[in-house]
């Protein structure tokens, strides 16, 4: 059995084991660290930086950094939350996120983070980039206006025999997600829904699903993102 040791998150002492990530430890203890590119059961890839925390004074990504003895971690601080807010806002201004007409509204992690981090007034100017919709697939629709390039789809959605349905094409600024139409045209409705659900924003849509979720019943309608984790702590204490 691995030996336990102690670390501090925002001054709170936690007893942890080697091999766990900061994010895992925090979540297990009812402490919410915002994330975006990370997703259950996917290998973390540390691309979005939303989970940044300060470890002994240095910014690190909580989803990939494993705990070590004597770590003092700053998470829910003004400085870190400001930094996260800037990252989130950058995603808003580089894409075209028109929440009022997006069917993912209320279920969207990006939107929920913007609310939680109080992104009220934009501090940067919008790029109004010209992006397309790829609607050629009979089951799924890709709205490139909304993709935040988290790669959750590419990492998590495979055909039953393990083939990739999503992949990135192009490089640099032109990088975009693409869908293998040959593979995707025969996917089940469940798989299509899974693809929609893995996408944190409204970039992957299961066709003809639309606004089936009534307002008031959507994931973040009544409680902010992260409150399920924080509730864990309330229950325990």
């Amino acid at each position: 059995m691995k030996k336990k040791f102690k670390i501090l998150i925002d001054g709170k002492e936690l007893s942890v084991k080697h091999g766990q990530t900061i994010l895992e430890v925090a979540s297990n203890n009812g402490i919410y660290i915002p994330t975006l590119c990370n997703y259950v059961n996917l290998e973390p890839q540390a691309s979005c930086r939303v989970c940044s925390v300060k470890v002994n004074g240095r910014p690190m990504t909580a989803c990939t950094t494993t705990v070590r003895p004597k770590m003092e971690i700053e998470n829910d601080t003004k400085e870190m939350n400001e930094l996260r807010k800037i990252i989130i806002e950058t995603m808003f201004i580089t894409g075209n996120h028109f929440c009022p007409s997006c069917e993912k509204s209320g279920n969207c992690e990006l939107q929920a983070l913007a609310y939680r981090l109080k992104m009220d007034v934009p501090q940067f100017s919008y790029s109004f980039s010209n992006k397309d919709i790829d609607a050629s697939n009979p089951k799924l629709m890709i709205d490139h206006n909304r993709c935040i390039k988290c790669k959750r789809c590419a990492r998590g959605i495979k055909t039953d025999d393990g083939k990739d349905i999503f992949a990135f094409k192009n490089r640099g600024k032109k990088i975009m997600i693409s869908i293998d139409n040959e593979l995707a045209k025969n996917i089940s409705d469940e798989k299509a829904q899974e693809a929609m659900d893995i996408c944190p924003v409204g970039a992957i849509l299961k066709k003809e699903r639309g606004f089936i979720d009534p307002i008031g019943t959507r994931k973040y309608d009544n409680k902010p993102i992260g409150s399920d984790i924080e509730k864990l702590m309330e229950v325990r204490s």
Binding site: P100, S101, E103, I133, A135, M141, G210, F211
Partner: peptide, 14 residues
Amino acid sequence: QGRPYWEAPVTVQR
């Protein structure tokens, strides 16, 4: 134009 049809009732009300 170009938007999915099921979006129209929500979008055009704006």
